[in-house]
Simulated assay, not measured.
Amino acid sequence: MPHEALVHEIRRFNRFYTGLVGLLDETLMQSPYTLAEARMLFELGRKPRPGGRAGLLARMFHLDLAPVASELAGELDLAPAYLMRVLRQFAATGLVEMREDPENGPPVLALTERGKAALADLEAATNRDLARLTVKLGDRQAAELSDALSRVTRLLAAAGM
């Protein structure tokens, strides 16, 4: 298959899938969070991030979020300034907080109980929607879809994507 045709097929699939799961909606899963914000919550829920050892004034203005923003921005391929604004918003709304690392390392940025609850709600809504998409698939079709997704992941990862 010529690469132009492959690019066309990938774009066609992307349009189909993003419409199917609502990724182009203003917010994700009728939540107050955009897709990028939901990804940030997920990453922070997966593992707390080391923050800086800033002084009291810097902590008051959330300036110690810079190391976290820089690391997450690279992982999520987002602009650090945008990520920093969202992290500040998360802190102001009680979703994240800086905590002392229990192992005496630098303070870490982690989800609060409120942040964990928001993430759990997002994950439950996502799981419900994906289950709704696949509920009519028989066992063979589900296995075929799983194999196809694994194959796409493997092929694109091997191509350096």
Rank of each mutant, 00 (worst) to 15 (best):
F16S: 06
T18I: 05
G19T: 07
L20H: 07
V21P: 00
G22N: 04
E26F: 10
L28M: 07
L28C: 05
M29A: 10
L35R: 14
A36S: 13
A36K: 10
E37A: 07
A38N: 05
A38S: 12
R39G: 03
L41A: 05
F42E: 10
F42G: 02
G51L: 08
M60T: 04
M60C: 04
F61K: 13
L65S: 04
A66Q: 10
V68G: 02
A69W: 00
A69I: 03
S70R: 10
L72P: 00
A73N: 02
L76A: 08
D77T: 12
L78Y: 10
L78C: 06
A79E: 08
L83F: 09
L83M: 09
M84R: 06
M84Y: 08
R85L: 13
R85K: 11
V86Y: 01
V86K: 01
R88W: 01
A91E: 14
A91L: 12
A92H: 10
T93I: 12
T93Q: 13
V96E: 03
R99G: 00
E100Q: 13
D101Q: 02
N104K: 13
N104F: 14
P107W: 05
P107M: 07
V108I: 14
V108H: 08
T112I: 07
E113M: 06
G115F: 07
K116T: 04
A117D: 09
A118Y: 03
A120Y: 09
L122W: 01
A125P: 01
T126M: 06
T126C: 09
D129T: 12
A131N: 09
A131I: 07
R132V: 10
R132E: 15
L133I: 12
L133P: 03
T134F: 02
D139L: 11
D139Q: 15
D139K: 15
R140Y: 11
Q141P: 04
Q141K: 15
E144W: 12
A148Y: 14
T153K: 11
T153G: 07
R154H: 08
L155Q: 09
A157F: 07
